[in-house]
Amino acid sequence: MKILGKLTILLCGVLLMVFAMEFPNWGDPESPASTHLSPYFIQHTMEDTAVPNIVTSVLADYRGYDTMFETTVILTAGLACFLLLRIERKKIPHRYYRHEPTGVTLRMEGEKYPKNSAVFQRMDANWVPYDFVISRTCRLIIPFIQIFALYVVAHGHHSPGGGFQGGVIMGASVILFAISHNLRTSIKNFSEKTAALFSVTGVFIYAGTGALCLLFGEVFLNYSALAPILGGDRVMARSHGILVVEIGVAVAVTAVMIWIYYNLSSAGKQDEGL
């Protein structure tokens, strides 16, 4: 069986190499992509969409369908994690509480948990004392990370970046908070329900923008139809439409990243995490 697997991999590798020979060289001006597609985008992006970053306009405007379904794929990934992991399992048999004034740790069983107590603090089973330096430093950094994420989303028209990258950075800031403090504090601030709602809202913003174009009598995702609402002429409407769509992508990606992390790090229980 092992030999068979190795043979298959070898065969696939050889086939890949043979067909990679047929590919045009990197940066070849004679290749089909460079003779047919790229010149059009390079010459017409500015007059079509008024977006200096060609990649952004190709992603969100010329190939809007592709990006819309990419966002849907990410939503599906979040839902798959949710459906696979988040099943109602047996309750955790015991919990650990720390009596703050004395520092004594108690193991409690049954349902007699001291809820909302001022002196008892819930602890994870694999609790290590939270490092003061790490938690404070993370608290200090997180606002800057989030502002940078917003910048990446908003500045995607002019520089590398856009909805996906900004959304991931935004999600990473919440994940950093969950790692540096604990999962329950993070869930208290950004609950699972919020994550689920936001991830669907993001995809809805994207698809809704496309559907709105249909209402204005244009084809799906042709943002130039939105000129009456967004203001400006039809070219600027495409630029603004790209921004609206990028915001939708960012919201969806942020929420899905956080949602997947919650489910993965706590094995679906969303109680004791990393």
């Binding site: 996906f164 990258q165 991931v168 999600g171 990473a172 994940i175």
Partner: peptide, 17 residues
Amino acid sequence: DVAFTEATVGAGVSTVF
């Protein structure tokens, strides 16, 4: 743009996952 996505998604979040 691809490098940026790789840095955030590949090196950042998926390692954490």
